[in-house]
Design a protein around this nucleic acid. Structure first.
Length: 771
DNA sequence: CAGTGAGCGAGCTTCCGCTTGACTT
């Protein structure tokens, strides 16, 4: 007979709690939700008050059976899932599925996994909060209705297998709208004026420092005029202002801020951050990594105090309590922090070490003193003009938390940029070394990184810590958006310099629009977005989630019946679904670019069956139209007639090599060279399929042949189709375009022909078995 | 790994939020 069974969501949590509770308590985990709506159909009985049809998920059957058995033997079952909507629902599903009786079932909650918090929770059990459960059912049913009624419209009207949902569709909308802002942005040029002045140090050394004219000059002409006036100018310091300033640390990490900082400082994708964090959590090194709370337990606060005192001294301690600002935060957990704050670093993989140290620094810094600064602003009068130069400098008087953590900035770059300002005095005259007029262009808005999009979604209250990373993956997997680097384009900028009373001009080049690891919407993302915004504006509205969240809150308080809320929504929503299915045309995003000046045929671009294509000629009236795939980076929305006409120049024969034609084309995976029935990819960003010449093509062919030869470990004279190759995951066997595993114990170089045949036979058998 | 684009039709796709393994071609 078991005295007590405690059920929590996570196995790692179960292990920790079991230690705290002692022998009488058996702690098990449910591994999250155990039931969900059936996937076979809508899973909601529309004519029966939206009754959800729950089934036990396939991968949970085993654990449910086990829990059922133990629960039957236990005297008391403690449901200890999280204290939020989803946690309450998990507790309720457990009590339903395990047939728990109210008299021996107790619901307990705690916000932090510390011994005292858990013991306190045990002292204050309650029943299941059905209102809170109902708010979760409303959330679940609403998301299912939206997702499972919108997606099929897209399959009919745009393309199969597409998807739409309350969260993902808004995420795509953010990216599409930002992209359009950037595409339509017209950069404006102006001139920034920087002067280098010399200052005689106490030890007789001349030191340069920088000052700027606060306003921008609108044209080159005005800049030249200003520089000319400076040829015979004198410079006097007319004002010095010294102001104290303060900087304070950021709160400890939540899921969203951890993803942002890991992206910025360590270059991690949001998925990578979560995978590494999961590892650290399972090893007991950090607290739970899916949280929206910035709260630290009292235990953590006192550990932080001790650690800071030991490491930096008492003057660096400032214990702070942070409040969550995020919309819709449910705060079931602590902030993400090291379990043991005295451990500054850990053993483990390089990525784990780096992420741990980031978390340690952020947590410790959050409990450290403000940094005290002194900002100096000096005004330098120019005798010949009305403009004044302004020099600013900043000195750190007390580093405080900056000793361990600088936020969201590349620390080295920041250090380099800082202007060291000398101790100037009023009425002091200065000598000018040079003045530079630099042409500056206004910048469009930034494109989103994965983590930047998560930040935006969190601000809008859309999505939860457990779904940020999956959402980012979904919109990429559907092809709506792509994460990539873009080289940008060169741009000339004017530089005008005054030095030794002589004005010189030079032209520099800079890269505009260079992007690294940013999210770009694809054509299909734009088409789907426009379609949804057209027909379902209310759901695509950035405030839709906030609006329904308010209603979920009312349901949780018992002020609103969940089925009534759903009914209110569904009546009008479903009507729109029907209308849209009936009325709207199939959408291809078609755009007519104009006429081919040579053939006179209409040229258009649209979404074809296999992706965006350009089409020359009308299917109805002309003879068979020609098609050409758009190149990567080209958008239906922005491609020009000229660019589209160029696409029809492919495939093209550029010459011959070894007696065979060399043909350039564009395929599913980008531009390629075809030679003797073999394909060779062009180099991304280096080779242009429209201009590549035969010599370069030969080079690429030879390069590929060389690297293929390197891959081969062994061949057999008995059958040249069998190849032992070196792959990404180690050696493998390749035979007629199929790959087979080589047992780890075998030295691939020693594999015999007979053994290879054996492996192929075995591999074919097991692959049919798996199906 | 690669070049397609007519049309028919069966059968499939899909949501968000909780949680980890079992997979490694």
């Amino acid at each position: 007979m078991i005295e007590n069974l405690v059920i929590v969501e996570s196995p790692a949590k179960a292990r920790t709690i079991e230690r705290f509770l002692g022998k009488d308590f058996h702690v098990k985990s449910s591994f999250g939700h155990i039931r969900d709506l059936t996937k076979k159909n809508l899973g909601i009985e529309l004519d029966n008050k939206y009754k959800p049809q729950y089934i036990i998920s396939e991968d949970k059957k085993k654990i449910v059976a086990e829990l059922k058995k133990i629960a039957g033997e236990a005297k008391i079952v403690w449901l200890a899932s999280d204290e939020d909507r989803e946690g309450e629902a998990i507790a309720w599903h457990l009590s339903e599925v395990l047939n728990l009786k109210t008299e021996n079932t107790k619901r307990i909650v705690f916000h932090e996994i510390t011994k005292s918090a858990i013991q306190a929770a045990i002292q204050q059990p309650r029943g299941i909060d059905q209102n809170l459960v109902n708010s979760q059912q409303a959330r679940r049913v609403l998301d299912r209705l939206v997702g499972f009624e919108l997606s099929p419209i897209l399959w009919k009207k745009i393309q199969p297998s597409l998807s739409a949902g309350r969260v993902q569709s808004v995420a795509v909308r953010l990216l599409v709208e930002r992209e359009r802002e950037i595409l339509s942005f017209k950069p404006a040029a102006s001139y920034k004026i920087e002067g280098i002045f010399m200052f005689l140090d106490q030890d007789g050394q001349e030191r340069p420092f920088k000052a700027e004219i606060p306003k921008r000059f609108p044209s080159k002409q005005k800049t030249l005029e200003f520089l000319n006036k400076n040829k015979d100018a004198e410079y006097v310091v007319t004002n010095i202002e010294v102001k104290p300033a303060k900087r304070w640390p950021s709160p400890p990490f939540t899921t969203s801020t951890l993803q942002q900082e890991a992206s910025w400082k360590l270059g991690f994708s949001v998925i990578q951050t979560m995978l590494v964090a999961q590892k650290l959590y399972e090893a007991g090194k950090i607290t739970y990594m899916r949280t929206d709370s910035v709260n630290l337990s009292n235990l953590a606060l006192s550990a932080a105090k001790k650690t800071i005192s030991n490491e930096f001294g008492n003057e660096y301690i400032k214990i702070r309590k942070y409040k969550t600002k995020a919309k819709g935060a449910q705060e079931a957990h602590e902030a993400i922090r090291p379990t043991y704050l005295q451990n500054k670093s850990i053993d483990g993989a390089a990525t784990e070490k780096k992420l741990y140290e980031l978390i340690w620094k952020r947590t410790i810094a959050s409990q450290m003193s403000d940094a005290l600064l002194e900002k100096t602003v000096a005004t330098i009068d120019v005798s010949t003009t009305e403009e004044d130069f302004i020099a600013t400098g900043e000195v750190i008087k007390f580093d405080g938390f900056l000793r361990v953590y600088t936020e969201s900035k590349n620390e080295e770059a920041e250090g380099k940029k800082k202007n060291i300002l000398p101790l100037l005095k009023i009425n002091q005259t200065l000598t000018n070394k040079s003045i530079l007029g630099i042409e500056k262009f206004t910048q469009p808005q930034f494109r989103y990184t994965e983590a930047g999009l998560v930040k935006k979604l969190e601000e809008l209250g859309i999505g939860r810590p457990s779904t940020y990373a999956p959402t980012i993956s979904t919109i990429q997997n559907r092809g709506y958006v792509v994460k990539e680097d873009r080289p940008g384009s060169e741009r000339k900028i004017n530089l005008i310099r005054l030095e030794n009373k002589v004005i010189t001009e030079e032209i520099q080049t800079e890269f505009a629009g260079r992007e690294k690891g940013k999210l770009f919407p694809n054509d299909i993302g734009m088409i789907v977005n426009d379609f949804l915004v057209d027909h379902f504006n209310d759901i695509l509205n950035y405030n839709f989630t906030a609006k329904v969240e308010k209603e979920f809150d009312e349901i949780a308080l018992g002020k609103l019946d969940w089925t009534e809320m759903i009914d209110e929504f569904y009546q009008s929503f479903h009507k729109k679904v029907e209308e849209t299915l009936k009325c709207s045309e199939k959408k291809t995003g078609e755009r007519i670019l104009g006429e081919d000046p040579v053939t006179g045929l209409t040229v258009l671009v649209k979404m074809g069956r296999y992706g965006p294509v350009a089409q020359s000629g009308d299917a109805g009236k002309d003879k068979k139209p020609r098609f050409a795939r758009l190149l990567k980076g080209q958008l239906i929305e922005t491609i020009t007639l000229e660019e589209a006409l160029n696409l029809f120049k492919l495939p093209r024969i550029i010459g011959a090599y070894e007696g065979k034609d060399v043909i350039i084309g564009v395929g599913k995976f980008g531009p390629y060279i075809r030679h003797n029935d073999k394909f060779y990819s062009l180099k991304k960003g280096i080779d242009d399929p429209l201009t590549i010449e035969i010599e370069r093509a030969k080079e690429l062919i030879e390069e590929k042949r060389k690297s293929d030869r390197k891959k081969v470990i062994k061949t057999f004279s008995e059958d040249p189709d069998i190849l032992i190759l070196k792959g990404r995951y180690g050696p493998y066997l390749s035979y007629k375009k199929k790959n087979y595993r080589i047992p780890k114990a075998k030295d691939p170089g020693e594999l015999s022909y007979e053994e290879s045949l054996e492996l192929i036979k075995k591999g074919q058998k097991s692959s049919t078995k798996n199906k």
